[in-house]
């Protein structure tokens, strides 16, 4: 049996809203007890609509926010950032790529500095070594050497997303959380980035948590699928199970709502319209 990289047990996250002078505060349950297990080298896709708690879950897995209750295990090691500060070794293991490629890069940092920053913080490599590593990573994600000294605004969305992926990989993570990494990109660029992600997964043996609202992308990239609805995991299984035999009502609604771009459904629609 292969190793489990990520495991969560009953992860809960509540937000307390308001609580002004004259108003009682309300508690929002963003994530209500999610449990999952993910093996090395696999891709888990988390699907759901805005506000379903998938991004909150991603932030907990990435150890940005502490869970209100429940356990998070990375590589079998229990993580609790509310009580114990992370060691650099633990920090390094999980990295994240955000949805919006325009907001995720510091506009005042050159690409080279973006890539070297994680090394400066987490390692004591000499400057030359840092630069070599950043440089080879830049080439690995399909950018050119002359991009090293440019600022983020000089790049297109797809290129920025490549840079964000490169930055996430600088620390050799075990697990990469991809929070809607392609939903802000054009179709053709989306294909390039998805290919890149697949290549990198093979090369580095990466484990992905892929958050998305786009079922066609999920169907393409995922090994396992979790469907979230109002903070709960209403469906969780392998890709085949979920797509061929959805159990929950909401999953079926979601599938039905996804636009179909095949000739058969166009024919059917046109026939309906003609009638």
């Amino acid at each position: 049996m292969s190793e489990i990289v990520l495991e969560t047990r009953n992860l809960v996250r509540d937000y307390v809203i308001g609580g002004g002078l004259f108003r009682p505060s309300r508690v929002i349950h963003a994530v209500k007890g999610v449990s999952l297990k993910l093996e090395k080298g696999k891709t888990l896709a988390i699907v759901g609509e805005s506000g379903c708690g998938k991004s909150t879950l991603a932030r907990m897995i990435t150890m940005i926010d502490a869970p209100t209750a429940g356990e998070l295990l990375i590589d079998g090691e229990q993580i609790d950032i509310a009580r114990k500060t992370l060691t650099p070794e633990q920090r390094r293991k999980v990295q994240i790529v955000f949805q919006n490629p325009y907001g995720s890069l510091n506009p005042r940092q050159k690409i080279g500095d973006v890539l070297m920053e994680p090394l400066i913080i987490n390692s004591d490599l000499p400057a030359a070594e840092r630069r070599d590593r950043a440089f080879s990573m830049l080439l690995k994600v399909g950018l050119r050497p002359e991009h090293f000294n440019r600022y983020p605004h000089m790049f297109s969305g797809g290129q920025r997303q490549r840079i964000a992926i490169a930055r996430a990989l600088m620390l050799n993570p075990r697990l990469l959380v991809l929070d809607e990494p392609v939903s802000a990109l054009d179709l053709s660029v989306q294909a390039q980035v998805l290919n890149l992600l697949a290549d990198l997964q093979d090369e580095f043996g990466l484990t992905y948590v892929f958050i998305s609202h786009d079922l066609s992308v999920v169907r393409y990239i995922a090994d396992e699928v979790m469907v979230m609805y109002f903070g709960e995991a209403v469906e969780y299984g392998t890709r085949e199970e979920v797509f061929s035999n959805p159990q929950h009502e909401y999953t079926r609604t979601l599938f039905a709502a996804t636009p179909r771009a095949d000739v058969e459904s166009i024919r059917r629609r046109l026939a309906r319209k003609a009638a």
Partner: peptide, 17 residues
Amino acid sequence: GRDYVTAARVAGAGNIR
């Protein structure tokens, strides 16, 4: 609240940095 700040935090940057 911007993503690049979160990204730096995930890379291990402390408060002062």
